[in-house]
Design a binder for these strands. Structure first.
Lengths: 235, 235
DNA sequence: GACAGATTGAAACAATTGTTTAATATTTAC
DNA sequence: GTAAATATTAAACAATTGTTTCAATCTGTC
C-alpha cells in the first residue's frame, strides 16, 4: 500500500536518503569540521540509519569530499561568471566601477550569515586540514579566479607587469576576505564598546583605497625607479 | 642514588614534566588542533605518563587554554612594542617608512615555516572552534593592536575620520594576513606552472599600493563628496 | 633511617568512534 | 504473483578517546 505519510512535510520525506545525507553533511561538516562530526550526527540529521552513509557514499571520508565539491563548485562558477561579465562589459568600466562590481560579486555569496558563512568556514577548515590534495584545491577553485581577475584588471586598470597585477589581485582579495571574516565575527560576539563591523561602508572604503592603490602603478610605465618597486631586485 | 642518565641529553631529561608537556602540547595543538590531538599523543611526545596531563593541568581542555596563552601572549607583546616604536620614532616617519616597518614587524614573527606557521594555524583553529570566549580573544589579542595601529597611523598618515582610519587598518592587515597564508601555502604544495609566492616582493608592492591608498584620503579634508565616501549614507 | 608530600607509573574505566554484518523491507521487472 | 535487485534496519565489532584509580617511586625534612 502506497500510504503517503501525511504528518510529515514532503520536503523532508520525499527526498531520497542520498540527498538528505549530502545536505546534512554539508551543514554539519561546515559547522564543526570532519573530525568533530560523527556519522551518527549526520544520520540523525538526515533521519536515516547509521549504515546509510557507508551504503550510499562508501564511508565518511568520501562523503566529505562529495560535500565539499557540491558546496564549492557552484560558488566558483558564480565567481567566474561575475568576472566574465566584467571582462565583456561595454564600454570598459572605470576602475571604480570595476572595483565596486568585483567587491559586490565577491562578497555577495559570502555575507549571508547561514549559507555564506558555511562557505567561509568550510574552506577555512579544508585549508587547515586538507582532505583533498591542496594542489587540486588550488588549481580547481583558487587559481582560475585569480588568473581571470588579473585578466579583467588588465582591461580596466593601469598598465603594469603581470607580476604586479597578481600582487594587486592579492591585495584586493586579502582585503575582501578579511572584511568578510570581520563581518561574520562581529555578528557572533558581543563586545561592549565596539560598533558592529559595517560591511557596506567597508566596500566604499575598499573602492576608494584600492583605486588609488592601483593607480599608483600608472605613474611609471617606463621608468620604474621608485624605491619600493623592487624591480631591480628580481632574481 | 642520584644517577644522571647519561644516554639522554640534558635538554629533554632535566626539564620538568610540566614544561615538556606544555611545549609538546603547543606543537601538537597547532599542528592538528585540539580534537585531533589525543592526550596520548602529547604524553608520548613529552615522554611521560598519560596521567601526567590531568595531574599537572587538570585536563586536556585546560592544557589547551594554557598552551594558547603561552603561545600568543609573547606575539602580542612583540607586536605592541613594534607599534609603540613607530609611535615614538623621531622624526615622524614618512608614510612609506611607516608601512614598511609595520609590514616587516607584522610579518616577521609569522613568516617562519615552523614557529611562525604555528602561530597562524593556532589562531585560525581557535577562530574556527573557539575554546576561550571569542570576546576575550578579540579584546585581549586583536583589538589592542588594531587600536594602537590606528593611533600610529593618525600620527604619520593623512587626516581622516577615526572610522576611515580603522578601515584603512583593516585593509593593511587584510593584505598582510593574506600574504602570509599565500607564503605558507606556496611552500607546502607543488603546483606545476606557478612560481612560489614572493613575500619580500609583496612587501614592496604593499608599501606602494597602500601608501597610495592611504593618500586617497588626503584629498578631501573638508569636502568629502566623492561618490564612494559613503558619508551621506551613514544612518 | 623515617616519615610526609609530591610525582610517576601501569592498568582499567566508561563512552564514543567508523564500519560491518545479516536480516528485513521495499521497489522494480517480468 | 514471483523473483531479483535495491534499500533500510538493528545489533555488534574493534579501536580509540579522556579520565580515574591506586600502588610505586622520588624528594626534601626531621
Amino acid at each position: 500500500m502506497e500510504t503517503q505519510i501525511s504528518t510529515c512535510d514532503a520536503t523532508s520525506e520525499a527526498r531520497e536518503t542520498h540527498e538528505r545525507i549530502l545536505e546534512a553533511a554539508q551543514k554539519l561538516f561546515a559547522e564543526k569540521g570532519l573530525d568533530a562530526t560523527s556519522v551518527r550526527d549526520i544520520t540523525a540529521a538526515a533521519d536515516c540509519n547509521v549504515a546509510a552513509v557507508n551504503y550510499h557514499f562508501g564511508g565518511k571520508e568520501n562523503l566529505y569530499l562529495e560535500s565539499f565539491k557540491a558546496m564549492l563548485g557552484p560558488l566558483r562558477d558564480q565567481r567566474l561568471a561575475m568576472i566574465a561579465e566584467l571582462m565583456e562589459r561595454e564600454p570598459v568600466p572605470t576602475l571604480e566601477e570595476f572595483l565596486a562590481t568585483f567587491a559586490e560579486g565577491f562578497l555577495d555569496p559570502l555575507v549571508d550569515h547561514s549559507r555564506g558563512r558555511m562557505f567561509m568556514v568550510f574552506v577555512s577548515r579544508e585549508l587547515l586540514d586538507p582532505r583533498l590534495p591542496l594542489s587540486v584545491f588550488l588549481e580547481e577553485f583558487i587559481l582560475p579566479m585569480v588568473q581571470r581577475a588579473a585578466a579583467a584588471l588588465e582591461r580596466v586598470g593601469p598598465p603594469m607587469t603581470p607580476n604586479n597585477r597578481i600582487m594587486c589581485i592579492f591585495s584586493l582579495i586579502g582585503q575582501l576576505l578579511h572584511a568578510v571574516k570581520a563581518h561574520h565575527l562581529s555578528a557572533h560576539v558581543e563586545i561592549q564598546d565596539a560598533v558592529p563591523f559595517d560591511l557596506a561602508g567597508f566596500v566604499d572604503h575598499f573602492v576608494r583605497f584600492s583605486s588609488a592603490g592601483l593607480r599608483a602603478y600608472s605613474l611609471d610605465e617606463t621608468a620604474s625607479s621608485t624605491p619600493f618597486t623592487g624591480g631591480e631586485k628580481d632574481q
